[in-house]
Design a protein around this nucleic acid. Sequence first.
DNA 1: CTGAAAGCGCTAACAA
DNA 2: TTGTTAGCGCTTTCAG
Lengths: 361, 361
Amino acid sequence: VQSIAHLFLYLIEINHSFLKVSKTNSTIHDIARELKITASTVSRALNDHPRISVTTKEIVRDMARKLNYKPNSIASNLRKGKGNTIGVIIPIINRYFFANIIHGIESVANEAGYNILICQSNEDLMKEIESIKTLVNNRVNGIMISISAKTRNAKHFEPAVLSKIPVVQFDRIIETFDSGKILSDDFNGAYNTVKHLIEQGYRNIVHFAGPQFVKMYNDRLNGYKTALLENNIPYNQSMILEGFLSREKGIEGMKLILDKKIKSDALFAASDLSALGAIQVLKEREISIPGRFGVAGYVNELFAELIDPSLTTTEQFGAEIGKASAGMMLEQITQNSAKTNGQITIIPKLIIRDSTNRIKS
Amino acid sequence: VQSIAHLFLYLIEINHSFLKVSKTNSTIHDIARELKITASTVSRALNDHPRISVTTKEIVRDMARKLNYKPNSIASNLRKGKGNTIGVIIPIINRYFFANIIHGIESVANEAGYNILICQSNEDLMKEIESIKTLVNNRVNGIMISISAKTRNAKHFEPAVLSKIPVVQFDRIIETFDSGKILSDDFNGAYNTVKHLIEQGYRNIVHFAGPQFVKMYNDRLNGYKTALLENNIPYNQSMILEGFLSREKGIEGMKLILDKKIKSDALFAASDLSALGAIQVLKEREISIPGRFGVAGYVNELFAELIDPSLTTTEQFGAEIGKASAGMMLEQITQNSAKTNGQITIIPKLIIRDSTNRIKS
DNA sequence: CTGAAAGCGCTAACAA
DNA sequence: TTGTTAGCGCTTTCAG
């Protein structure tokens, strides 16, 4: 009888060491078996359930450590029917503005215990559609999205809606789609820029605008117009160059203005890059900035303060946009009702630098 | 009897509409029930299993559409014991270099059907440790990491190792930890920069170095030294300023050099920012660039080509680093053995611009 | 305070 | 070609 008992113990030992070597990840059951208690108790102990004795908790935790137990969030999420992940879809990540937003989102989400799953649409509607599907299939708790340049409607948001996954749109949005919305106040940003130019004594202000079917750029144009009209400066269609956002376009645009001898003494560009292009042309032609010509951009790209002259522009606070978006997302998730579909507008700030500051104040 | 049959049908109908309204996400079982077939068949049909009749596949897919079925990847992953997610840990995302890497990683991973889960360490070791745990708990298929500035060893990688989750380190790595490694060739990048300076006739070359316990910066210093020695230029300790990476430090450093009247005609800065700071000082003091003083940076930040004079610097191809990292990760995942722990070095490229190009070639 | 038992949604042997 | 059955790892009622 004794030898049988020994054999038995021996087998248990084999089993144990086998367990340690072969099992990559031990489970709650492994812990339970070792401790000769049930999985439920282990689960509760690990989750610090109030009605579990302190001693049990301790031995469970010890064994968990010994067996190198790692909770399987996948299984836990499946069982609980909810995950801990927020999906984010952006056009492209390696642009400072978006990177900054992601930065903000990640901070807030992480703080609240959520992971973020990132998808780039690369400005491609098809990839955007796929991304939404993937995120829905992965049962993310929410989807935050800034649409691609080619997206014109929200049809492809449907899977999220049908699955009752809350959506928050930021920066580039589909207005007609009912969701949380985080925007930068482009109208006021533009308005303030132009107002500043006028205060600096500029009167003939050119505007390098973006494509007008994009609300953001349309808002900037409207801010420009309003500032002019409020100051009794006639608005002149020939001062608007639409679709002039790149550096190359900035160079082209400025040359156009100068060569056509369009009466002008300042530029408000809807992008820092085109403002930079314009500055290059002005410097080449030895037109003094800000003396004879003032230049303001938009977005406050990293280079704006580093070029010469440093560029007056508008900071949009990308990280804040990200944080606000994540905040709204969290609300929607926890309140568990899409009824918190608010809209938050982040107020941008005019950063006055050398390129417009001729009346040093 | 008839009325009972009607009642029965009625109940079925209630059940159906109930299903449509209340069930947010229908399951494979719902489809199976409607079609009076089994869940396995549905599963197989949906996964385009070869041994399922075409007609069955069709009716299954139709019903899936009708019921707004969305496959639950969580459940699928749990069952299959593997996921479709790669975790990425970086110090901070809103820096162009890292954003670019993420961009590269996402493209490759997405192409291969993987999602990426992003964590920022914010240069904080504690957060890095937490991130690794989270990723392990979420059973990611792999972890890609660029360590924080405060990380000195790989102890906290252990959870990943124990769980047999492949690790790929990129850019900032722990050398002693056995894993896939993707690096930029800092030695050669620096070497080529200094060689170029020498070819341009500069002889007394200052170096703004980074903290030397970081391999990357040490490599750059060594590249600098080697280039000097190979050209019979004595290496002089007083020409090295360690920890001069920011713009402010660049300004400070350049002033130091000039005020101390240290004989010098060029600068190789380990960062574009400190190079920029130096340029500002030189311009202030009307020391011509590149005539009397050549300046080269490192990293090719966005602003490098935009400042005046445009900055000679080294492009590291962040997106390529990301792609290579993701590629290696995928290999490790699919080969399912950590034996592919190779090391890939991405060769950086010297971008010659105005700040050093005095012998216009 | 702990155990028993059921099931989240899916997949994959093994059968038929 | 399809069905049966079991189970991934965890949580959570319901009992005791």
